[in-house]
Write a protein that binds this DNA or RNA. Structure first.
Lengths: 343, 343
DNA sequence: ATTAGCACTCTCCCTATGAGAGTGCTAATA
DNA sequence: TATTAGCACTCTCATAGGGAGAGTGCTAAT
């Protein structure tokens, strides 16, 4: 069924009122607050139709109405009015970011900003290092039998890993190895995900007959098995959940708590949405995760030097101020992109 | 007032019963379950005295009794029977640790083990790098204007920091600097907290007149302002809170949630207890933190190569199985010490 | 097409009530 | 003197009833 203009207006009013008060919305509330010049009976009739079409639902037969996930989806796609951050807010965000000179700090600051500004949970997915060209590799002996491997990508990301080696470290060999690798890296662009295969192939050509090949081979394999595939996530503002009446019910709180406990699940979810469009909104049961059925997630991708790197987002009850969540998420992801590109 | 033997027995019974059922303990429950060969009236009288002396309290006038913080403290100090982990459990712990080959992984595994085994929140305070002798410093240029500083301590801990420098990097100078520093480090033991002062003093002697002194000085200062003072904490099992009836009350849940949200507070608290004895138990209001008033914290220090490094612990409601919490925390801290010493 | 009017439903809050659990006190008992 | 049986008392908890109020769906009138 196609919604007529009046139904759209009423749906938007219900979404707005419910967001504001967290109470089911009655026809008289709509009539009073939103000045539609309609009687409550008429509004009631439209709401009845909206309910028949799954845009609204009632907790019980004689109560006001609450938007369904479908109702929120229609609102987000067709009805909501874009929100713009005030200049003052923008300045404050920039001010806070000024203190973040390091990568880790920038991640933390971002999740804190998101949670403070939205009263929801701030989520930051650390850069996913797929599709990054490797620029340089360094081996640093640390201690007796350990080597710190440092991989630098063209986007300026630095991955590190400490590898244990059996036997003592021959510095000349290590230098030879790193010179060899770096010369190969200079010759052609090698994606970090292919690093292992390509380099080991190249190595095989020149040292396959040497007695210590296996040793080097294993060492490099371990070096490259680095954590670029790890789903590092920064979360902030879990306590904000308690501010929302929907999470007074223990089982609902339980769901979302188990979601933010398993950071991997959240990370994988967000990663699954990467690459389609900058901003993505997932409302309640639209997510396949049962833990997310009472929540919405607004994510926005950030980039480093123009190359999509990761995503930030906010997680809260489906009853949220979508326009504002979106504008905050988008603005902060832009600023984060700038900062990470400069680092 | 000195507690007589019977009062001690009854107090221990109350603690045990309340831990088991989470219900206020009545005189008849004690008589039935703990076979003291006393009438309920007698037990009632003793409980009355225990209450007068602040070892027990009643939620309301005609209800059973609950231990106070003081009651728990007396139980922990004087009454409880040490618990020993079963060999099977020990083997399982060792088995799980076998997979942890890296530092970060060991930290995470530890917090997970703690929370899984105790149904409470597992806490791991990463090694605090005070009192560590610096063995070696390396500078690795990464990208154009950045240098990765690697500090290796005698305990084998590796701290890293990326420092931005203005202008291009002169590799010879960098080599000279690192050689100079490492020779000083070889000469005498320098504690990581003194690194800055001592080295800068030494440097001053030889290059104070050189034109780029300030530049080097600032660079080093930033390098050494490394995160050994950071309170890195690993938490796991927040969701376990929901299993405990005491946290059904929203405001109590609120308190503890805000505690685990502010990881720094928790870290600082635990750090404050370091260095006195291996295992430390903080019960409810014994902590100055109002957020901890409904919780107990059991911590146990771990070491690296015999040198105290950090602490692990569990955080849960004051109503907890203290003997078991202690034995688990202590056993895991021992295992963690072994693993970190080998890494 | 819209709306006034109304019967109907459901929640919420208040009260009352009674059962049950558990206590403190007192007087009897070993 | 220490212990205990007995009992009055207090408080919680579950249940039920009832009335006010909010909000609906439907119908008939405009």
């Amino acid at each position: 069924m196609e919604l007529n203009e009046r139904m759209k207006t009423i749906l938007a009013a219900v979404v707005h009122s419910y967001f504001t008060t967290a109470e089911p919305v009655s026809s008289s509330i709509i009539a009073q607050k939103y000045h539609l010049n309609l009687s409550t009976a008429t509004i009631r009739h439209e709401m009845y139709l909206l309910e028949k079409n799954d845009y609204l639902w009632q907790p019980h037969i004689s109560s006001g109405r609450i938007p369904t996930d479908k109702g929120y989806r229609f609102y987000v796609d067709n009805l909501m009015v874009k929100n713009y951050l005030q200049e003052k807010e923008k300045r404050e965000i920039i001010q806070i970011y000024k203190k973040s000179k390091e990568f880790e700090e920038a991640m933390k600051t971002t999740s804190q900003l998101l949670s403070k500004l939205t009263d929801n949970i701030g989520v930051v997915l650390a850069p996913v290092i797929y599709n990054n060209i490797v620029k340089e590799i360094q081996f640093v002996p640390v201690g007796n039998n350990r080597i710190l491997t440092v991989i630098v990508t063209d986007a300026g990301l630095v991955c590190q890993k400490i590898v244990n080696v059996s036997g003592e470290i021959n510095k000349d060999r290590l230098n030879y190895l790193s010179n060899f690798i770096n010369s190969k890296l200079a010759e052609k662009d090698i994606d970090i995900t292919n690093l292992n295969n390509i380099l080991l192939d190249e190595l095989e050509k020149i040292i396959s007959l040497q007695e210590r090949f296996n040793y080097v081979y294993n060492f490099l394999e371990e070096c490259f098995n680095i954590r670029y595939s790890e789903n590092k996530v920064y979360l902030d503002g879990r306590i904000n959940l308690m501010k929302h009446p929907e999470f007074k019910e223990t089982d609902k709180l339980n769901y979302i708590l188990s979601l933010i406990e398993e950071e991997n699940i959240l990370a994988t979810t967000i990663r699954g949405y990467l690459g389609f469009r900058k901003t993505k909104i997932i409302i309640g049961k639209e997510s396949k995760l049962k833990e997310m059925q009472n929540c919405s997630l607004v994510t926005s991708e950030y980039s480093i030097k123009g190359k999509s790197a990761g995503a930030i987002g906010i997680l809260g009850p489906t009853r949220m101020d979508y326009p504002r969540m979106i504008s905050i998420t988008e603005y902060i992801s832009d600023k984060l992109s700038e900062i990470l590109s400069e680092l």
